[in-house]
Design a protein around this nucleic acid. Structure first.
Length: 436
DNA sequence: TCTGGGGTCCTAGGACCC
DNA sequence: TCTGGGGTCCTAGGACCC
């Protein structure tokens, strides 16, 4: 626990939706919902305009549509989000080299690695405001919420206190006073299940938690968790800001619009996913020993099976063969809504290619049927497209063999709207180059 | 037709070894 | 005719996070 406020947490506001509003001026000031647009999709991010209608992350898209039917429902353009994210992370590293990205839209920054010489409230406030301005500038107008405090925990709690587009500094010494009246769910790691256990023990607030012994907490929620709760309830948090975190697993999964019933189709899909996993392993120079599959049945019961190889692999065919064998031992006769493949036990070296070959996978993929997923549709709303005469635009909607395109980017508002047949050869997905 | 996708960490039991 | 005690690896499931 530091005695000065030198840990900063930054969180980009409604990040995916904000990138869409930045790039598509017609969406500014309007409810925008990013997520799976299909029947089994859920909301990833809702703009603040959509939140006013009660739309929240992780809500089913179906429910979001009924709450906010006039919102723009978009599928998400991850290349654009990754690009915006790396610009922001670069700005943070410029301000202070010790940056720990937590996700695409969040990071910790250790101010002890910056040029600051003192950490009094006025100084770190000015630093935080400059950082927010620099982020806005570099990202084309994205806003961020910032919290600064004496630990990761406090910085993260602080960044939540004045969202969106806010900055909160928690003066050292005032942490417990801040935390005590808050619900136990402010503590990272306390989700619905833990909160319910604590509630049954009469523990609702951090102050309640503080009154419970460590032994009692361990009895209630387990060893590691109980220990953490005991200390975090007292604002004791010594976790350091770590810049490099190595991946521990790589996985690909998909939920399908309708339940899968045919084992052959499932094997094809696992084979394709294995290829995607292998591709990502190779891209990052990784290989792993443990191959896992994940299967979610029609009734949402979820099973996983794994097996560990003698040596690490990044080979599509080896992963695929393991995955299919693992599926073979499961009863999937009731129908499957989700399939996934993962590799863990990662090493940063690669065994020579002793078994299998990629051509084996390519053969199997030849007559692979397209199975629509909850996220991916052929002409997904939000997708960038290019028309040979009209130029760049984005898909506004699609249906009945027709796709509607708005020819508008941040540079050309407001753009015209046109509809085309889905198979119109003049219309193609626009694929910008990936950053990195 | 409630309930995504990509991760991390923890627990608990069994195998196996010394 | 009773039954140790660690440590490590592996597997399955669950909770949680964004």
């Amino acid at each position: 626990m530091r005695t000065e406020a030198s840990v900063l947490h930054i969180d980009l506001d409604a990040f995916f939706a904000a990138v869409e509003q930045r790039d598509k001026p017609s969406l500014r000031g309007k409810p925008v919902i990013i997520g799976g647009v299909g029947g089994r999709g859920v909301v990833a991010t809702a703009s603040y305009e959509a939140r006013a209608f009660g739309v929240r992350s992780a809500m089913s898209t179906r429910e979001a549509r009924s709450r906010c039917p006039n919102a723009a429902f978009l599928n998400g353009r991850f290349h654009a989000y990754r690009e915006a994210s790396s610009r922001v992370m670069a700005v943070l590293r410029e301000a202070s080299p010790l940056v720990e990205p937590l996700s695409i839209d969040e990071a910790f920054v250790d101010l002890r690695a910056s040029d600051l010489e003192t950490y009094d409230v006025a100084t770190v406030t000015a630093f935080g405001e400059q950082l927010r301005a620099a982020v806005r500038e570099a990202s084309g107008g994205l806003t961020a919420s910032v919290g600064i405090g004496s630990s990761k925990f406090i910085a993260k709690v602080a960044s939540d206190l004045d969202k969106p587009d806010g900055l909160v500094v928690v003066p050292p010494g005032t942490e417990q006073q801040l935390l005590r009246p808050m619900a136990v769910t402010v503590i990272p790691g306390v989700g619905p299940a833990t909160a319910e256990r604590l509630r049954r023990a009469g523990i609702h607030t951090v102050a309640d938690l503080e009154a419970v012994s460590e032994d009692e907490l361990v009895r209630l929620v387990g060893k590691a968790h109980g220990h953490n709760l005991f200390h975090l309830a007292r604002a004791q948090d010594d976790r350091t800001v770590e810049s490099a975190r190595e991946a521990k697993s790589v996985s690909v999964e998909g939920t399908y619009e309708t339940d899968l019933a045919d084992r052959k189709v499932m094997e094809h899909l696992l084979t394709r996913q294995a290829g995607q996993v292998g591709e990502r392993l190779r891209k990052h120079g990784l290989s792993g020993r443990t191959v896992s599959i994940k299967v979610r049945l029609h009734d949402f019961t979820t099973m996983s099976r794994s097996s560990t190889l003698a040596s690490p692999t990044d080979n599509d065919a080896v992963i695929a063969r393991q995955a299919r064998a693992l599926l073979g031992a499961l009863d999937v006769s009731g129908g499957v809504r989700l399939l996934g493949v993962g590799v863990s036990g990662l090493a940063d070296w690669v065994q020579d290619d002793l078994f299998g070959s990629s051509s084996e996978v390519e053969e199997e993929l030849e007559e692979l049927p397209e199975v629509p997923t909850a996220r991916t549709l052929t002409w997904a709303p939000g997708m960038d497209v290019e028309h040979s005469q009209m130029g760049r635009g984005w898909v506004w909607g699609s249906g009945k063999g027709v796709v509607t395109v708005r020819f508008e980017t941040a540079l050309t508002p407001p753009g015209p709207v046109r509809s085309y047949r889905m198979d119109d050869p003049e219309l193609q997905p626009f694929m910008p180059p990936e950053p990195d």
